[in-house]
Amino acid sequence: MSKKEYIKSLVKEAELYRTQSLLTESKKKYLQALQFIQKTQLFSNKEKIVGAIKNKIRILEKDQARITEDKVTPKLSKDVQGLIKRLFSFSNNKEAVRVEGAVALAKFGQHERALKEFHSLLNEGTFPLVSAKNIIRCHMSLKSPDAAINEFGHWVSGDLLSIRQLENIRVFLQTLLEKQGHEAKLPEVVEAPSQIPKTEKKQDDVIDICAVKLKLEDGPQKGNIAEFDVNFQSGNVITVIVSAQQKELVDTLTIGIQLPDMEFYSPIAIFRGSGIVFGKTQIKSGPKKGDYVLDIRVDSA
């Protein structure tokens, strides 16, 4: 292959990669061609060819920058948002499906629609802690820390959430604010947040937990072992549903009770740890009416 043919083949390759939108590969080939030409004395119109290739590289770099900088998530149509809700919710439980749909909307960057969904869930008392935390997450993703703080203040003065749930959300919000470099004095909950153990793990440190096993340390069922599937997880708080038929067990698991001997099952590992019953509500409507929703905070794992 002559030198001219070699350069032609490099440029041809670079062009083809460009048409395939393989911009890095295209640039690499143009640079290879450029270096070869600059080393070669054969061409009378060397400057012109070098200029043309440099121009191609400039255009490629502009395209690369445009793609890298394009981080704006498009607002999707209502139909597509509805499709996302439908396609990415997998539970059999009607309430759980609604939460999963709203979480999927948030994950696909449709935060405004997700906010509406979570507000409606919270107002109905469906998975209040999960819904409230996701509302905070959505505000923070929308770069509206003030809205998150205001929302929290509104909850503190209302009765949608229990004291313990509010405490949990306060820590959660504070952590997010600090992560994003905001300083804010959040409204106090009745029980001062300083009572929350300093050793509490950061929310994101706990891996996804699918199921949990716990040994009952007190009450009439002392020594018994209970196992639950985890319906939801938000940071270090897991939510399980306990059948109304297990009322005796539910009564044992009072809010604030320590669970020192727990086993957590995740897709990648089984680990032991401890937790605390953080919230307990009875489901008031739907197919699971009468069952109990227990929020358990994983304290050490």
């Binding site: 939108s21 445009r66 394009d70 998530t73 498009p74 597509v80 499709l83 396609l87």
Partner: peptide, 15 residues
Amino acid sequence: VSINTTGDRTLFFDF
């Protein structure tokens, strides 16, 4: 359903 971004790259998914 296709959700694309700059440069015609798939942003979320096609369905």
